[in-house]
């Protein structure tokens, strides 16, 4: 192994190697790193898109941040705290749903092949990769109170339907997001379960373990690294997901005003670039913490193996 790496060095000189890295550095620097820095600067101003502060933004120091954390009103509808609260429920609900369902499907089809698996995997994956506006549209039709598919089915069972997006906006977008994102956990756990050596399981069978014991005592410990990966990445993505906007627009009455939608509305519907940037900074800080915890988890895993 060592020998191979050493020889590998001769294939590409360091200079050539670095030259190949330049384009990527330019793109990432300009379109990822630079916006990341700039958003900090804007967050200290009262810059807007309309009105006098669009032409001459003023430096307002921590003003935007103090306003966001004005605890006397931050739990009111449409305020930052309210949005954070909704987001926490949304993320936890999505996380539990996606990871459990993904794991269940992967487990159910572990070491199975055939048409049935193909159908399920295709459906779940399509939910994940199809374009968001088309998905938003079909879900709007699915959940429609008067003519939607869901209520039609409930009606067949004698259950009276409701206007899902109006009465249960947060629940609706959480279920939607589980539907949309389960594929990731499913594929991740499928790969992980597929890598478990059959001999482990055979040993368990010989020992007379039931399926649940088999899962708990043998499989789960072996896939726990992937489990951590799924937890952190799903949290990170769900925290930033904007697609529910296409279903509810954040409403009704800010009932589904999760943080990604909130940021968008403050910046691009109420035109408050400064305050929107302050929210963005807080969002990115939370993202950073999540990302760091992931890195930390990876490191620990590397140490362990």
């Amino acid at each position: 192994m060592d020998d191979l790496t050493k020889r590998g060095n001769h294939i590409l000189s360091v200079r050539a190697g670095v030259a190949l890295l330049v384009p990527a550095f330019v793109f990432i620097g300009l379109f990822l790193f630079f916006p990341f820095i700039w958003v900090f600067l804007i967050s200290f101003t009262n810059r807007t898109l309309l009105g006098a502060a669009a032409q001459d933004p003023e430096f307002v120091g921590l003003g935007n941040y103090l306003r966001l954390f004005d605890f006397s009103r931050w739990m009111r509808s449409g305020e930052f705290g309210h949005s954070l609260y909704l987001t926490v429920i949304f993320v936890i609900g999505s996380l539990i749903g996606q990871v459990t369902l993904g794991l269940a499907i992967a487990f159910a089809f572990n070491r199975r092949r055939g048409k049935l698996r193909e159908i399920i995997y295709t459906l779940v994956t399509l939910a994940w990769i199809l374009p968001e506006t088309a998905i938003g549209f079909t879900w709007t039709a699915f959940l429609d109170g008067r003519r939607g598919t869901l209520n039609a089915i409930l009606g067949a069972f004698g259950i009276e339907g409701v206007e899902w997006l109006l009465e249960f906006p947060l629940l609706s977008i959480t279920v939607f997001n589980i539907w949309r994102g389960t594929a990731f956990s499913m594929l991740l756990f499928s790969a992980a379960l597929g890598n478990i050596r059959p001999s482990y399981l055979e040993t368990a069978d010989v020992a007379g373990a039931g399926p649940w014991q088999r899962f708990r005592d043998i499989m789960f410990p072996l896939i726990s690294p992937q489990f951590v990966t799924a937890l952190v990445l799903v949290t990170l993505w769900t925290f930033n997901v904007f697609t529910p906007f296409l279903l509810t627009g954040g409403g009704p009455a800010f009932g589904s005003d999760i943080i990604a939608i909130h940021t968008y509305r403050v910046a691009f519907q109420f035109f408050e670039f400064g305050r929107g940037s302050a929210i963005a900074v807080i969002v990115m800080t939370i993202n950073l913490i999540l990302a760091a915890s992931y890195l930390f988890g990876l490191k620990r895993k590397e140490v362990a193996t």
Partner: peptide, 8 residues
């Protein structure tokens, strides 16, 4: 008024 003040 908003558009005027923004200079648009």
């Amino acid at each position: 008024p908003d558009f005027v003040e923004a200079g648009y």
